[in-house]
């Protein structure tokens, strides 16, 4: 069976061109999407739904840097969600607590601007980690696991900040 990179005709590596990923995703969906099988047999409809589902999953996985890195590690037999894997370093946990504190303050002060600033800060932190991933993935898989975990954390914080902004806006 093809891995996600092969399915989307990309080299199995962290650095990929997003426009190419998108173009290949669309080309593939244009062939396999259930809309192309509306008049087909139930057996073909099922095949189409499963393949289109797989193509969507591959696309979403490769589009997100953290998921793409985690997927590359999983191809090497490393599961980032395995509790046995390296823990997050203390300094990261501290900045993470700072972010949560800023969120709490903004929540009580109804300060959406502060949350928007926090969102940018958190995104920049994520970008910095992503920038190093190519090298880290190639040389030190253990370290890469930590980077991916950080990114997943950052995505969670971003989602929570977005949720908070939405609830303050209502």
């Amino acid at each position: 069976m093809l891995n996600h990179f092969q399915l989307l005709q990309l080299p199995t590596q962290f650095e990929i061109a997003l426009p190419t990923l998108e173009a290949h995703f669309r080309r593939l969906q244009a062939e396999v999407h259930p809309d192309k099988y509306v008049n087909a047999t139930p057996a073909e409809k099922l095949q189409s739904m499963q393949m289109a589902t797989l193509v969507n999953e591959a696309f979403q996985t490769l589009k997100s840097p953290s998921q793409r890195a985690a997927y590359l590690l999983s191809l090497q037999g490393i599961d980032v969600n395995d509790p046995q894997q390296a823990a997050l370093p203390a300094d990261f946990l501290i900045s993470q607590m700072d972010w949560r504190e800023t969120m709490e303050d903004a929540k009580h002060g109804n300060d959406i601007a502060a949350l928007e600033t926090l969102l940018r800060e958190v995104r920049d932190a994520g970008k910095a980690i992503e920038a190093q991933l190519t090298t880290v993935l190639a040389s030190a898989p253990k370290e890469a696991v930590v980077s991916v975990k950080k990114l997943i954390f950052i995505e969670k914080v971003s989602a929570d900040v977005n949720q908070l902004i939405a609830s303050l806006e209502d």
Binding site: L28, V32, L46
Partner: peptide
């Protein structure tokens, strides 16, 4: 159906 889908891909 399965072979047709592979061929489409």
């Amino acid at each position: 159906a399965a072979r047709r889908m592979d061929a489409s891909v």
